[in-house]
Simulated scan of single mutants.
Amino acid sequence: MQHPSGNRTIKFILYTNKDFSTINDTINFSLTIRNHEHTVAFDSALTSIRIKDIPGPSNKWTFTKTVPNDGTILSAGFLYSIKNVGNSWFLDTVGVNQKMKTIEYPFQ
Rank of each mutant, 00 (worst) to 15 (best):
T66W: 05
D25C: 00
D19K: 10
K99M: 07
S21Q: 09
V67C: 04
T47Q: 13
T47K: 11
T62P: 09
G95H: 06
P57A: 14
I23N: 15
M100R: 08
T26Q: 09
N28E: 10
N28I: 03
S44C: 11
S81I: 06
V40C: 09
T66M: 06
F107G: 13
N84R: 05
G6K: 04
G6L: 00
K11L: 06
N28H: 15
T62Q: 11
F63G: 07
T66G: 04
H38G: 13
R34I: 01
I49V: 07
F20W: 09
Y15P: 00
Q2I: 15
R8K: 15
F20D: 12
K101R: 09
G86A: 04
N59E: 09
T9Y: 00
I27W: 00
F20A: 10
R34Q: 12
S5M: 11
F90M: 03
G77D: 06
I73P: 01
T62H: 01
Q98R: 03
T26G: 05
N35C: 10
N59H: 09
K18H: 12
N24G: 05
H3Y: 12
N28D: 11
V67N: 01
F20E: 10
L46G: 01
V67K: 10
V94A: 04
S44V: 03
N97W: 06
I23S: 14
P55V: 04
E37V: 00
D25E: 02
G77C: 09
Y80N: 01
N59A: 13
V96G: 00
L31V: 03
K60F: 04
T16A: 11
L91P: 02
F12M: 02
T102K: 13
R50H: 05
T102C: 02
T64K: 10
K52C: 12
Q2M: 07
V94N: 05
I23H: 05
T72A: 11
W89Y: 06
T66L: 08
Y15M: 02
T26H: 03
F63L: 02
S30K: 14
K52H: 03
T93Q: 13
I73R: 11
T16G: 10
Q2Y: 11
L31Y: 12
N97E: 11
N7W: 06
K60W: 03
N69P: 09
I49K: 13
P55W: 14
Q98C: 06
V67D: 01
Q108E: 08
D70A: 03
D70P: 04
P4T: 07
P4D: 04
I51C: 05
N97C: 10
H36L: 06
Y105R: 06
S21W: 09
S5K: 15
S75K: 10
G56D: 11
F42Y: 15
V40N: 12
Y15W: 08
P68Y: 04
K65R: 15
S44I: 02
